[in-house]
Each structure stands twice: as structure tokens, then as C-alpha cells.
Amino acid sequence: MKRTKGVASGLIAIVLSAVVFLVPFAFIVLTASKTRGEAALREFSLPSEWAIWENFLAVVQARDYMLLAAFVNSTILTVASIVLMVVLAAMVGYVMQRRPNRWTPLANALVLAGLIIPPAVVPTIWVLQGLGLFRTLPGLVLIEVAYGLSFCVLLFRAFVATIPREVDEAAVIDGAGPVRLFFQVILPLLRSVIWTVVIVQAVAVFNDFQNPLYFLPGDDHATVQLTLYNFRSQYTTQWNLLFMDILLITVPPLIMYAFFNRQIVAGLTSGAVKG
């Protein structure tokens, strides 16, 4: 009885989920594989003639291989900001947990502020211009680091608490200084939480649209999300190419999900149980 109920509601759920969640993605894939004329109808149907490879080439070659350049930019942005975020946030989380003193409440308050306060856009541009970093990739990297630090520090601090202090003491007896203690002993022990941070932030930075729009405008260093936004005004009549672009930009996070879904789930739900 219970079993059949589970099967029946499961089947209904499969159909519903397919309509609600899979149809929009099927629509992207199908439109991306149609010829220009057919895609213009914007129907949910199988293409009569598959043009997926032609569309792929056309999108990649458009505007002098701009999409490839954008993928390179987005990759540099994502990798650089995540490396910095992990190292800087791990250092802070580690000292915050190991050495509570009168500065710790201030650090805590700043971490919370970083989670809640919406960044002030124009003054940030003003500061970046003063530093000569406005409209540069390094500038955007530092912005992503600054905005992502709070979340990472919270995760690292919670995880460092689970590493026994005896580990530190053993390393100190063996003659490790503070830098070696952290980079050669503690950091390797943080491996699992580092993966979580890397994956959650990689998806966030790669998909970020607002910050590149403000701090890295123009075509020179456009990220993939910006090219998609720009392509939209350019391809109003070439729906097949627009959707091919969406498809290509959607793929990297989904690949990450396929490989790392355990870490993603762990990262996103941390704190949900304890509150």
C-alpha cells in the first residue's frame, strides 16, 4: 500500500518536474540546434534540420572570437579570485578561531556586515579609479574577493574549530614557526572545506553579472555573462545563436555539479542544521 503510493506520487512528481524544470532547458537545447528561420518561430519542437555544429561555430567565431576571449577572462577571474579568497579567508578564520581576543568581536561584526550590507557601487568605482584598477581584470578579482570573504571566513572558522589544538602543539614541538604551522599543517587539513568554498564560490563568481557590469564594462575584458547580455541586443533575430550562447554558458556549472554535487550540497547547507 505504502509502496504503491510512493510509486504513484513519484510518477506524478517526475512528470511535473519535467514540465516545470526540464522544459525550459530542453527549449534552450532545441532552439540552439535549429536553423535561423526555424528558431525564429520560437516553438517547442524538434528541429527538422539539426544545425547544432554550425550554430556552435557561428557563436564562437562571432565578433572575432569574442566568446572565446570571454571564456578566458571568466576563467582567469574565477581561478584568481578563488585562490585569493581561500588563502586570505583561511588565514582569518584560523586566527579568529584559535586566538580570541578583544579584536575578535570587531572581526565578527565586519564578517556579518559583509554578508548583509549591499556594496556601495559608485563610491567603489571612485576608489578603484583612485587605485588605477577600474576597468581592469585585477580590479574585478579583488572586488570578488572582498565580497566573497565573509562567507568563506564563516566556513573556515567553523571548520578550524574541529581540528584539535594538539595538532598545532605537535607541529610547534617539531619546530614549526607560525607560517609553516599554518601553510604546511593546518591548510592541508582544511581540504574538505576548501573544496566546498572553491565550488560554491566558483559557481557564484562565474555566474556573476552585476559586478562585471559595473566594474569591468566594455568589450575589452568582457566576461561570459556580459557577452551573453550584449549578444542579446545583437541577436534579436538570430534566436538559434542566442540560445547556443546560453547553452555554452550554462554548461560549465552543470559539469561542476555532476562531479562535485556532494561538496556543493555540503557547502550550501552548512549552518542550516545548527542554525
Binding site: F21, P24, L228, L242, I246, T250, L268
Partner: peptide
């Protein structure tokens, strides 16, 4: 969908 580009979803 949580992981997919917001711009992509918006345009779609």
C-alpha cells in the same frame, strides 16, 4: 537551476 547563469535564465 540554482547553479545556472542568472542572465541565461533571465533571457530564456
Amino acid at each position: 537551476p540554482v547553479l545556472v547563469s542568472t542572465v541565461g535564465i533571465g533571457v530564456t
